[in-house]
Amino acid sequence: MDLKGILSSPQVSSTSYDKVIYFQADRYPKTAAHIEYAIDKGKSAICTIDCDGAEENRSQSLKGIPTKKGYDRDEYPMAFCDEGGTDVDIEYVKPADNRGAGSWISHQVNDFPDGTKILIQVK
């Protein structure tokens, strides 16, 4: 879904977020596909940063989801988002793609304080 499509959806308006992150699908294709899939299924395209809640969110989101040899359990919305935790979408993704994507996103939001609303746009 492109930015125009996201902004025209009833749950997102240009005043409902503070920043936009353009997630690089060509660098992390499996994670990008998961983000798009989860948003298409109704998960929020907006992430409200909540770094203090990340550990608890991760614990809730991965509870009961078995590990799979050679794969990470990718969660969307991500654990550092207030929208993370229970009722997230989980996909099995190869570690290089998932961890690279996690590191990249981390660097994008590192300077934003908790409470910042980020629109995630896959590009």
Rank of each mutant, 00 (worst) to 15 (best):
V12L: 15
V12G: 10
V12D: 09
S13F: 11
S13N: 08
S13W: 10
S13A: 08
S13K: 07
S14D: 10
S14E: 11
S14W: 14
S14K: 07
S14C: 02
S14R: 07
S14Y: 14
S14Q: 07
T15C: 01
T15Q: 07
T15P: 00
T15K: 08
S16V: 09
S16I: 10
S16P: 01
S16A: 06
Y17H: 05
Y17V: 00
D18G: 08
K19L: 10
K19N: 09
V20P: 04
V20Y: 02
V20H: 03
V20G: 09
V20D: 06
I21A: 08
I21R: 12
I21D: 07
Y22M: 02
Y22R: 14
Y22S: 13
Y22G: 05
F23A: 01
F23V: 00
F23P: 00
F23W: 01
Q24E: 13
Q24D: 14
A25I: 04
A25L: 07
D26Q: 10
D26W: 04
D26E: 12
D26V: 02
R27T: 02
R27K: 12
Y28S: 01
Y28P: 00
Y28T: 00
Y28V: 03
Y28H: 09
P29F: 02
P29D: 01
P29M: 05
P29R: 03
P29Y: 04
K30L: 13
K30W: 06
T31L: 09
T31V: 15
T31M: 10
T31A: 11
T31S: 09
T31C: 07
A32S: 09
A32R: 04
A32D: 02
A32M: 02
A33Y: 12
A33N: 10
A33L: 10
A33R: 13
A33M: 09
H34Y: 06
H34N: 04
H34S: 12
H34I: 07
H34V: 03
H34A: 13
I35R: 04
I35V: 14
I35N: 03
E36W: 04
E36A: 15
E36S: 14
Y37P: 00
Y37A: 12
Y37E: 07
Y37T: 10
A38K: 02
A38C: 15
A38E: 05
A38Y: 06
I39Y: 12
I39W: 10
I39K: 04
D40S: 15
D40V: 11
D40A: 15
K41R: 12
K41M: 14
K41Y: 11
K41V: 10
K41C: 11
K41A: 13
K41W: 12
G42C: 04
G42E: 05
G42I: 07
G42H: 06
G42D: 02
G42K: 06
